[in-house]
C-alpha cells in the first residue's frame, strides 16, 4: 500500500500528470452532461458518427501538418453536427442512414489520407492512437490543456444556461414548438455542444470509445434515479469518478487510459443494474 502511495506521489510531482488528470476529469464531466439527452432523443449514434468525422478531420489536419489539430477538427465536427441534424429533419435521407453514411465515409477517407500522406513513419500506431485514444494522455502540452479548459467551460456554461430548454426539447419537442418556442435553435445548441464534447473526448478515449464515455454514465444513472435533474447529477458524478479512477489505475498498472476508463464505466453500469433490481423488489 505504501508502495503504491509513493509511486503516486512521485507521479504527481510532475505537472503533466496533473494536466492529464484535469483534462480527463473535465472531459468526463462534459461528456456525461449531454449523454442523458442524447440517449433519450435516440441520438446515441450521433456521437459515434461525429467522432468518425473528427477522425477524418484529424487526418486532413495531419496533411497540413498543423501544430494543433483542433483548429481544423473543431469546425469540421461542428459543421457535420449541424448538417446531420438538418438531414434528420427533412426526410429525403433518414437520420439513421445519414449518420451511417457520414460516419463510415469519414472513416474511410480519413484512413485513406493517413496512408497517402503519412505524418510519421508509424501509420498503424497513429491510427490506433486516434481510434482508441493516446496510449497516454500524459503527452498533453500546456496549450492543449488551456484549450480543453476553455471548451469545457463553454460546454458547462451553455448546458447550465439552457438546462430547462434542453429538458423541454428532449421531453416533448412538439409541445415546445406548439408553445411558440423555436425548438430548432435548441436542437442546434445541443448539436454544437455535442460536437465540442466529441472533439474534447477524442483526446481522452479516442474516436471508437467516445459513445461509451457519453452513454454509459447516463444509462447507469437512469437505472436508479427517476427525475431528470437527479439523473444528470448522478451521471456527472459517475463519469467523473470513473474517469478519475480509470486514470489512476492506468498510471499504476500501465493500461491504456481510454479503455480503462470505459471499463470502469461498464463496471459501474453493472453495479447500478444490480442496485436497480433491489430497489424494484422493495417497491
Amino acid at each position: 500500500m505504501a508502495e503504491i502511495f509513493q509511486k503516486l506521489q512521485l507521479y504527481f510531482s510532475y505537472p503533466f500528470v496533473w494536466y492529464a488528470l484535469i483534462v480527463g476529469l473535465l472531459i468526463a464531466l462534459c461528456s456525461s452532461l449531454l449523454g442523458v439527452t442524447l440517449v433519450l432523443k435516440r441520438f446515441s449514434y450521433i456521437g459515434d458518427g461525429l467522432s468518425h468525422v473528427a477522425f477524418g478531420a484529424m487526418a486532413v489536419a495531419g496533411i497540413f501538418g498543423l501544430t494543433n489539430n483542433n483548429y481544423i477538427v473543431i469546425p469540421m465536427t461542428v459543421i457535420s453536427a449541424i448538417l446531420l441534424l438538418r438531414t434528420g429533419q427533412n426526410a429525403k435521407i433518414n437520420g439513421d442512414a445519414a449518420i451511417a453514411m457520414i460516419s463510415v465515409g469519414a472513416l474511410a477517407i480519413g484512413y485513406l489520407l493517413m496512408n497517402k500522406f503519412p505524418s510519421s513513419a508509424n501509420i498503424s500506431g497513429d491510427v490506433c492512437t486516434t481510434l482508441f485514444g493516446s496510449t497516454s494522455i500524459l503527452t498533453l502540452r500546456q496549450d492543449d490543456v488551456i484549450l480543453c479548459v476553455v471548451m469545457s467551460v463553454i460546454v458547462i456554461a451553455a448546458f447550465l444556461l439552457f438546462y430547462h430548454k434542453i429538458f423541454a426539447v428532449t421531453f416533448d419537442e412538439n409541445f415546445v414548438r406548439a408553445s411558440g418556442v423555436r425548438a430548432n435553435v435548441y436542437n442546434l445548441v445541443i448539436a454544437i455542444i455535442t460536437a465540442l464534447i466529441i472533439v474534447l473526448a477524442m483526446n481522452l478515449v479516442g474516436s471508437l470509445l467516445i459513445s461509451a464515455l457519453i452513454i454509459f454514465p447516463a444509462l447507469s444513472a437512469m437505472r436508479v434515479f427517476r427525475s431528470f435533474k437527479s439523473v444528470i447529477i448522478c451521471s456527472a458524478i459517475v463519469s467523473v469518478v470513473c474517469a478519475g479512477s480509470g486514470i489512476f489505475i492506468s498510471i499504476l498498472s500501465g493500461t491504456p487510459v481510454g479503455s480503462t476508463i470505459v471499463a470502469a464505466d461498464i463496471a459501474v453500469f453493472l453495479i447500478f443494474c444490480i442496485i436497480s433490481l433491489f430497489i424494484r423488489r422493495k417497491a
Binding site: F162, D172, F175, V181, A221, S227, F228, S230
Partner: peptide
C-alpha cells in the same frame, strides 16, 4: 423510459414564458 418528475414536466409548460432567462 424518460426519467422526469411530475414537477419538472409541469414547469416545462412555462418554457415559452421564460424566454432567454435560464431559470
Amino acid at each position: 423510459d424518460f426519467p422526469a418528475s411530475v414537477r419538472e414536466i409541469v414547469y416545462s409548460g412555462c418554457i415559452a414564458k421564460c424566454g432567454l432567462r435560464p431559470f
